[in-house]
Write a protein that binds this DNA or RNA. Structure first.
Lengths: 203, 203
DNA sequence: GTTTTTACTAGAATCTCGTTCTAGATTAAG
DNA sequence: CTTAATCTAGAACGAGATTCTAGTAAAAAC
C-alpha cells in the first residue's frame, strides 16, 4: 500500500459537511431507505458526481455520518468526565451527560441509535471497532485510580461502560422512537442513582 | 374494516417459515441491503409471486422476522421469570436468560439488535410498540409484589427493564458485532450482580 | 507566469433490483 | 361438480444507485 499524498482543497470540508447535514435531514424526515441520493444532492447543493467523489456511495455517506456522530458523542462525554473529581461524580456525569447530549442532538442521536452498523462496509466497521475500543479504554483508565483506591468495584474492563450507561441508552432509545413517556431529563437521576449503586463498594 | 374470513391452507405456515429462515440466513451472510428478494426466493424455494403474496414486500419479510423474533425473546424470558420465587432470583434470571438466549440464537439476536425498527412500516411500528408495552407491563407486574414488600426499590415503571437488562444488552450487542472479547457467558454474573445491586433495597 | 498535475464538479447513460401484473394451479366449501 | 378463494409463477416495468466521460479550477512545479 504505497503512501499517496492527497492534498485537500480549501472548500472541501465545507462541502462534505453540507452533504452530511443534508443526509441527516433527509434520513430523519424520510427514513434511510426512502431517501435517494438525489434528495441529498438537492438539499446540499452538491452534484451526483461530487457526492460520489467524496463518499463513494450512499452507504459511504451513511457511515460517514455515523462515525462522525459517534466521535462527537464520545469526545463530549470524555471532556465532561475528566472534570470530575470523585468516582461518584464520574459515574453520575456519564449518565446525565449522555442524557443531555441525546436531548440536545435528538436527530443525530436517533440516527446513531437506530441505524445499523451491520450494513456498513468492512472498512467502516473496522474504524468503528477501533473507535469503540479507544473509548472503552479511555473511560476505564479514568476510573482505574478510583478502583485502585477501593471507591469502586473491580470488574472486567469491558463491563464498566455497559453497566454505567447501558440503562440510560436503552431508555433514551425507546424515548426517541416515541415508545415512551417521560422525557429522559425527568428520570436521569433515577438512572444515575442506579449506576452508582451498581458501582459503589461497601454495603 | 369488514371482518374477512381468510382461510389458510395446509402448507402455508411452512412456506412462510421457510421464507423467514432463508431471509435470516441471507441477512446474516450478506447484510440486509445487499440481499435481494431473488436471493431469498432461491434459498427458500419460493417464487417471487409467492413471497409477495405472503409478505407484500421485502420490508414485510424483514419486519415479520423482527416481530417474530421479539415475540420469541419476550416469551422465553417471561417463562423463566415466572418460575422465580424471589426478587433477587428474578432480577438475576432476566440477565442470565437474556445472555443465554442471545448466545443460543446468535444470528437472530444480531438481527434484532442491529436492524432497528426505523425502516419498518407504520403498521409494523405500531405492532412493535404494542408488544413492547405489553412486555414492559408484564415484567413490571411480576416485580410489583416484591416492590410492595420492600425487597426492591420503588422506581418509575418504565425504568425497571432498562436498569436490569440495559447493560447486558449493550454488552451483547458489541459482542455480536465482533467488537468484543470475552463471551457473554463469562461475564453474565458480573451483570447479574450489578443489576441486583442497582435494584436491592437496604444497604 | 506558464505549465502541469490532480482534486473536484457535472450530469447523462447504464444496470441492478424491488415491485407490479397477468395468468394459471391448487385447495377448501357448498 | 362448481365455485370461489388461496396460492404459485415469472415476465415486464420503473425507480434509483452507480458508473462513465468530460470537463473546471485550484494547487504545485519550474
Amino acid at each position: 500500500m504505497g503512501s499517496r499524498k492527497t492534498v485537500m482543497r480549501a472548500g472541501t470540508p465545507a462541502r462534505q459537511q453540507s452533504i452530511l447535514e443534508a443526509a441527516l435531514g433527509c434520513f430523519t424526515g424520510l427514513g434511510i431507505d426512502a431517501t435517494t441520493v438525489e434528495d441529498i444532492c438537492r438539499e446540499s447543493g452538491a452534484s451526483i458526481g461530487s457526492l460520489y467523489h467524496h463518499f463513494g456511495s450512499k452507504e459511504g455517506v451513511a457511515s460517514g455520518l455515523f462515525i462522525d456522530g459517534v466521535k462527537r458523542l464520545n469526545a463530549d462525554l470524555l471532556k465532561k468526565l475528566r472534570r470530575c473529581r470523585s468516582a461518584e461524580a464520574g459515574v453520575r456525569v456519564v449518565v446525565t451527560q449522555y442524557c443531555d447530549w441525546v436531548t440536545k442532538h435528538a436527530d443525530l442521536a436517533r440516527y446513531l441509535l437506530n441505524s445499523r452498523d451491520i450494513a456498513f462496509s468492512e472498512g467502516a466497521r473496522r474504524e468503528l471497532k477501533e473507535i469503540h475500543r479507544e473509548h472503552i479504554t479511555a473511560v476505564f483508565q479514568w476510573f482505574a485510580p478510583y478502583v485502585a483506591a477501593g471507591d469502586m468495584k473491580r470488574l472486567p474492563p469491558d463491563t464498566y461502560v455497559p453497566i454505567i450507561s447501558g440503562p440510560i441508552q436503552d431508555y433514551t432509545r425507546h424515548w426517541l422512537a416515541g415508545q415512551t413517556q417521560a422525557s429522559p431529563s425527568r428520570v436521569k437521576h433515577v438512572f444515575a442513582d442506579a449506576a452508582w449503586n451498581a458501582m459503589r463498594t461497601g454495603a
